[in-house]
């Protein structure tokens, strides 16, 4: 069941990612009180072995916020930001970056941003998507990304990555946003868009 996608399908997924990320950046902007820019989103199918390097150097220290998604499209949403950008986000929220609340504040940011991304997808496709509470970890990029990919590895050697970056204006701070659906799930997404 190793799925490949044609250009039309990848374009459709890109468009979905664009709308999802647009919605997500609006909520992030509302929470932080700053304008948030978006990079053009990308949809890529990469061999599982290369997926980590596609995202970044495996040993880079990074903060990840993960949301599990159940429902019609089981997947994992992973938001990645550098520890210094995580500190900037905390400061914008009026928190000391080292305080005990920092981790839960980041989790909450992930929750709101991830949920608005998913709401946009659900609204467009009619899929029922239920996010689970966020989990936050700061560790090696490879460790976080491979753990997310591992849960999808049983049925495919490829990883479908929908990613986009949100950039907080005036702070030089960016959040990379990744949605990793399993292949059956992305198939469902494409069916709903009429390009399966």
């Amino acid at each position: 069941m190793s799925a490949t996608y044609n250009d039309v399908q990848l374009d459709a997924l890109r468009e979905l990612a664009n709308i999802g990320a647009g919605n997500a950046s609006t909520s992030l902007s509302g929470m932080l009180g700053r304008a948030v820019d978006l990079t053009v989103p990308d949809a890529r199918v990469v061999p599982m072995t290369q997926a980590v390097e596609e995202i970044g150097a495996p040993e880079t220290e990074i903060t990840g916020i993960a949301l599990g998604v159940s429902g019609d499209m089981p997947s994992i949403v992973l938001m990645l930001l550098s520890p210094s950008d995580a500190a900037v986000v905390c400061t914008l929220l009026g928190l000391e970056p080292d305080s005990e609340y920092a981790e839960s504040a980041l989790g909450e940011i992930g929750n709101v941003v991830g949920t608005s991304y998913l709401n946009a997808l659900a609204g467009m496709t009619g899929l029922a998507l239920e996010p689970s509470p966020p989990a936050t970890a700061t560790d090696m990029l490879g460790s976080l990304v491979e753990t997310v990919l591992a849960s999808r590895a049983a049925v495919s050697d490829d990883a479908l990555l929908l990613d986009s970056s949100m950039i907080v204006e005036g702070e030089g701070c960016s959040i990379v946003f990744l949605l990793s659906p399993d292949h059956g799930g992305a198939g469902e997404l494409l069916t709903r868009l009429g390009v399966s």
Binding site: G64, A66, I76, P134, L144, T147, S151
Partner: peptide, 15 residues
């Protein structure tokens, strides 16, 4: 075999 995102549980107990 670590549990990177303990709170998500379920699929994350792979470690």
């Amino acid at each position: 075999g670590a549990s990177m995102f303990a709170a998500i549980g379920g699929s994350m107990e792979v470690g």
